[in-house]
Design a protein around this nucleic acid. Structure first.
Lengths: 189, 189
DNA sequence: ACCCTATCTTGACGTTGACAAGATAGCGAC
DNA sequence: GTCGCTATCTTGTCAACGTCAAGATAGGGT
């Protein structure tokens, strides 16, 4: 009297199923607090199915990073019309797509030299550089302004996610980020 | 003919030895890329010695976090005389004590509700709040300024450590951080 | 009708974190 | 001094983990 179904050999492509399961697991227990086998169990596949598609755990996380940076670039580009909103979009992405974000900026978890990762990363960086130029008080400060704007948005997102800011419980991250950006860069320009 | 020494039962207190080994391991392979057993092997103790002193892996990382926040507070306080240097000290600590820093802001790795952690954390936050007040353009902007300054320093440190900034290879993080802080908060005040 | 390949499963191996039980050494009491 | 108590550390064990090798299945081209 087995309650487990017999083998049944899937033949759809499980890549998406597995990535989605990974995102959910990362959301629940952080980017390193889950196991491939538990993942497979939840996705209803064998314990080695993930390895087939992604080689190993790093390979799976590499796929997550690529997807993450791509979605990230899309989000930033969509906000680029209003320069002041790019930083807000940065924060919003980090919070709305926390699992992606947490993997993306932990390069030791995946293969950071993967060409797919590289190009997706560069695309995102490009959007940031372009919008920061608009905020810069002068061409000679362009690079410094980019770094400052990036640091400000990234730091706020990281602190918010790690729960270091007391406002994390209950506050509205977008509104807070918007005020912060206007305070800092309103004075600068 | 055994080449391994016989048991020999240490009786010093191995807490320090183990924490130091952990810091080294974290420095080499990130806050989650090492194993307790490998750690013990390097420290020359049995595979269960760490568990005796710290309960489990989380316990060991909790001890690291407490120590880290304490050293962090010391570093910030030492720089507090010159407000402009607090942010620089933040960055310097992150880079000079990378293993501590990487653990401290990953609360899912340790017991963030530990009373020791809490008080060490609050002490560090206190220094930040006090110095940010000096930079604030007005009392009603105090909180916003604190968050902005904190985000700026934390973001810069995180991006630098993760290698996201091209300047990470070869540049001088302290000097860069100093310019960035002066650019942003010089205009604000 | 056949085979070829991508897809997925099964089985196995060494390693890991954790627990339980045993061994050792220092130290105060008498 | 030696007895026993306790903190310290070791040994032994276990389920779970990541990875590899080998086998099973199904769908598409020929």
């Amino acid at each position: 009297m087995r309650e487990i179904s017999q083998p049944s050999y899937h033949h759809g492509n499980l890549r998406r199923v597995i990535i989605d399961a990974a995102l959910q697991a990362i959301g629940e227990s952080g980017p390193a607090g889950w196991s491939l086998r538990e993942l497979a169990r939840r996705a209803g596949v064998s314990h080695a199915a993930p390895a087939h598609h992604f080689g190993d755990k790093q390979g799976l996380l590499t796929a997550v990073a690529v997807e993450g940076f791509t979605l990230f670039s899309d989000a930033l580009e969509a906000a680029a019309a209003d320069v002041w909103e790019v930083g807000v979009a940065y924060v919003r992405f980090a919070i709305d797509h926390r699992p992606y974000f947490e993997v993306m900026f932990r390069p030791e978890l995946y293969r950071a030299d993967d060409p797919g990762v590289r190009s997706a990363q560069e695309r995102a960086a490009g959007v940031l550089v372009d919008s920061a130029r608009t905020l810069s008080p002068g061409a000679e400060h362009d690079r410094m302004t980019t770094i400052a704007a990036w640091s400000l948005a990234h730091g706020f997102a990281s602190l918010w996610l790690s729960g270091a800011l007391p406002e994390s419980s209950g506050g509205d991250p977008e509104a807070l980020a918007r005020s912060m950006i206007r305070l800092v860069f309103g004075a600068l320009r």
